[in-house]
Design a binder for these strands. Structure first.
Lengths: 334, 334
DNA sequence: GCCACGTCCTGTATCGTCACCACGCCAGCA
DNA sequence: TGCTGGCGTGGTGACGATACAGGACGTGGC
């Protein structure tokens, strides 16, 4: 069942069938209809592989994220799939497991021309890997670990957001604000940047920084968030507010504080970062920093699409986009 | 940079390069190394499109789910991607938006030989669409809307699980158990089957069924779950337990009950279905029915892989698998 | 010396599509 | 009448890989 068969059945040349399929002009209405009828009758389907080979494009972009079952990435993926569909692009998802190797593997697949482009959410790759990104196919970095890299970059307002979050806790009357921070693996990862924002807000308010109020965790999961909160509560450090590096961690922290018999917001106020959907429905509901997810997804796909349209030579300079954000105050800082 | 260039550089035929790439035997170690060196030097990458065309396989399976940002589907996708990777398969995700059209679109893409197979989570397609599934390429249905269809099917233990959940509430002392139920669109969708289980458990316990205790919702979201719980609380129907059709709905319901000033589990006990990760960390933590997600994902991919290996003629009869389950009791039914 | 067999490698023929260019036709115009 | 130019259509030839058949060579048995 090839284009040839259709051509024969319709009494035209394969090229005419191709034109009909691809909505090219220069086909008489009558001919077009005859072709469409033949396609219908034979139940013909284009062979995407053959088309890919011929055109050099696959119509699919890759999206590499640490784990698709983390709410933030799920919500990100949903947005990106939606936006990509508007550009007639499909999205294949790779899970990198938050590891450098996983991220490199995704890059390799993209290099194999399996994808027309790649949106890579970096966690493991660092500035040292900048050269690995010097590739000749479209890549957009979504995340924070690489600045001034050779590729387009869509970033969160990490420091500014963290600063606003911490400031919000201070404005609500907190004086001893703890931080549940993620793994710091360089100078420009999420955790480090949000840590910076936290420090800045303290400085701004003229409050001292107390290392005993920082609880680092190795993974940005609810489980670790809960454990960190219990650790803080048990340490006797004394705190009346917590800024959590992500909402997922914050939801875990709410649980950990409940386990420790602390009431939110009466005893301790809590704020997160990302404004994932779940935060609006937790008990108490979670205050958070809300970057513009739709805008970020749209920008990332937009960058990629522009790159894909570029003719080899006329390469633009790498673009960078930092999302605006707002603060959503809910019960946890009430 | 084609296989020909590599062949020329290594002084062998393209076929020998192909053999090396694909780990075929009958290549002398020395030759193999020469080829590998040439590949390295030229930075050669196979062109996946060409390979796909020639072999007729793409190495990618499709996973069509309503929305990837719903925790259940995120966690499902994560499992499936992991299992598929073990079979050297990539996974492309389609969002069907829980609509019939979306599901048909995913089927169409699969028909275009874009995917080697498709795992389709049906919500919109019903028994009436059985014929549309009578396709000649591998499809596995994940979900409940089509029984006795012409394709493999991996299902949840819907009725049995719902019955166990309801019975659990009764055993904990509830006498007026409400149900927050999803949209019923036929006889074999998730909502209907779980509704059946709820009714069975009531009958078993000799308790009357009270329609005033059933709160139907149109979408299985936290938002709708919260609204339904508030509706129930405000209706004056009087209830001391709620079985929610999914955990996502149950998490919303916890929120709604809190809004209505009802305490869980003291005033009302709550149980969900799916055992999503978030349920372990909510306050209070959520009791749930726990199907074996990993087993379901493994089985679905396994079915698909077997189908993909089948030679056209020797088609096996459709298989069906219903996951076992266990009940996880947490604070919400404490 | 001859044949059979296994190993290692090669030549050729597609896979199904679309880009490119050519061509026939007709209207409009000088 | 002959020329131009746009429209509708077709012929040819890659795109880059692999399937298949088979050849060259070396080894061992008789």
């Amino acid at each position: 069942m090839t284009i040839q068969d259709v051509a024969k059945a319709a009494g035209v040349s394969p090229m005419t069938v191709s034109h009909v399929i691809n909505d090219h002009p220069h086909v008489r209405t009558e001919t077009r209809e005859r072709v469409l009828r033949a396609i219908e009758e034979l139940d013909y389907r284009v062979n995407v592989a053959a088309r890919n080979l011929r055109t050099g494009r696959t119509g699919t972009i890759g999206l590499a994220v640490p784990e698709i079952d983390r709410p933030y990435y799920g919500q990100l993926a949903a947005e990106i799939i939606k936006v990509a569909a508007g550009h007639h692009l499909r999205v294949a998802i790779e899970q990198t497991g938050a590891s450098r190797e996983g991220e490199l593997a995704a890059l390799a697949l993209s290099r194999n021309r399996l994808y027309d482009g790649l949106i890579l959410s970096t966690v493991g790759l660092g500035p040292a890997d900048t050269d690995l990104l010097r590739v000749d196919h479209p890549v957009v970095i979504l995340g924070e670990r690489i600045f001034d890299g050779p590729v387009d970059h869509v970033a969160m307002p990490n420091s500014a957001g963290a600063r606003a979050a911490t400031r919000h806790l201070l404005e609500r009357g907190c004086r001893r604000v703890a931080l549940i921070d993620g793994p710091q693996r360089g100078e420009v990862d999420v955790s480090s940047l949000r840590y910076d924002g936290y420090r800045e807000a303290l400085d701004e308010a003229g409050l001292p920084f107390d290392p005993a109020l920082v609880a680092p965790i190795e993974q940005l999961t609810m489980e670790r968030g809960a454990a960190a909160a219990r650790r803080l509560a048990g340490s006797g450090a004394g705190f009346d507010g917590v800024f959590c590096v992500t909402d997922t961690v914050a939801l875990g922290a709410l649980r950990g504080l409940a386990d420790s018999g602390l009431r939110v917001p009466d005893d301790v106020k809590v704020i997160g970062f990302d404004n994932i959907a779940e935060g609006a429905y937790s008990v108490p509901s979670l205050s958070s920093i809300d970057p513009d997810h739709a805008l970020m997804a749209g920008t990332a796909v937009g960058f990629l699409v522009k790159r894909m349209a570029e003719k080899g030579a006329a390469r633009q300079a790498p673009r960078e986009f930092v999302s605006p954000f707002s603060l959503v105050a809910r019960e946890s800082t009430g």
